[in-house]
């Protein structure tokens, strides 16, 4: 029970990070971006490439920061991967989403995002192969925190949780304390009014993609660190991430953060009741349950 709770929170941290980016994009551009989870894949693989490059250049960078399996080279690679993923998101928007947006309804966007997801996933599969990859082959053993009740925790996961909390705090400060944050929120509330007030809409959209992409890259790398990488990891993560964003309420960053934890914990606890074969349905059941009670999610506002 305690173990399931802890597992849920630790697994949920990655979902939270993914969901924050998704919820911002969904709120701002008003469409369900099924390609968002592919940004996690882009980030994770970009970090893999640069991690290998840095280790090749300087072997000491490859040393593990005990007790983590995280290496110095991966930390540096992470920064580059965030930039690459943010840039990819902007480019995808520039070449696909923006044009579709200008042409038609927001629902064409949903389908366009399906198409984009398919392309990204298979291109990555072509380049890197379909097999799983790992940042570090070594197995990080869990630490026994308590014997009774039994509680095991992996250092990597604690790091991921802590890093996630720090990122959320920074994001919170940016959004609530800076002019940039005000501008972003104004655009999200009412794009036309914001534009009238001199906020450059296009630049704000670019900014949203950069932030969303950067957070997605972090989520992808953290997922790779605590699990593994594969070209289809986006496909595997898309439903839980959507669940987290919707549970929290679209547009609510705190909601998304909490939503990730809820989905993680629920998936973990669900196996205490359900046979494990049913676990892919759990995120969906959570979505449905929350929407029935609160049609706009836990922290979402009613929106036209």
């Amino acid at each position: 029970m305690i173990q399931s709770l802890a597992d849920g929170i630790l697994v949920g941290a990655v979902l939270s990070l993914g969901a924050i980016g998704l919820t911002m994009v969904m709120h701002m551009l008003r469409f369900a971006n099924f390609a968002h989870a592919e940004l996690l894949t882009i980030g994770a693989y970009a970090a893999l490439v640069f991690d290998r490059v840095f280790q090749g250049v300087n072997a000491t960078l490859g040393a593990k920061l005990a007790p983590l399996t995280l290496t110095g080279s991966l930390v540096v690679a992470m920064a580059i991967a965030m930039a690459i993923t943010g840039a990819s998101a902007v480019l995808i928007d520039r070449f696909v989403f923006r044009r579709v947006r200008e042409k038609g309804g927001e629902l064409s966007m949903v389908f366009a995002s399906f198409g984009v997801a398919l392309i990204v996933r298979n291109v990555i599969g072509l380049i890197f192969g379909l097999h799983t990859e790992l940042y570090s082959k070594g197995i990080a053993f869990a630490v026994v925190v308590s014997r009774d009740p039994l509680l095991l925790i992996k250092p990597d996961q604690v790091f991921v949780l802590a890093a996630t909390l720090v990122i959320m705090l920074v994001l919170h400060l940016v959004l609530s304390r800076t002019t940039l944050g005000y501008a972003l929120r104004a655009v999200a509330e009412n794009p036309s009014l914001a534009q009238v007030n001199g906020i450059p809409l296009k630049r704000m959209i670019v900014l949203i993609w950069v932030i969303g992409g950067g957070l997605a890259a972090t989520a992808g790398i953290f997922y790779g660190l605590t699990n593994h990488l594969s070209p289809v990891m986006g496909r595997d993560l898309v439903l839980p991430i959507f669940a987290a964003a919707i549970v929290g309420g679209i547009g609510s960053i705190y909601g998304a953060a909490l939503g990730g934890m809820i989905v993680g914990i629920a998936s973990s606890l669900a196996l205490l009741i359900l046979p494990s074969g049913y676990s892919p349905s759990v995120p969906f059941l959570i979505i449905l349950a929350v929407l029935l009670v609160r049609p706009n999610g836990l922290f979402g506002e009613v929106r036209a």
């Binding site: 399931s4 597992d7 595997d236 669900a270 196996l271 205490l272 494990s276 676990s279 892919p280």
Partner: peptide, 17 residues
């Protein structure tokens, strides 16, 4: 007897079971 589905992001809960 624990079933592992394809395309699951994490098998943590299954393994714990």
């Amino acid at each position: 007897q624990v079933a592992l589905n394809d395309a699951q992001p994490s098998y943590r809960a299954e393994v714990a079971e």
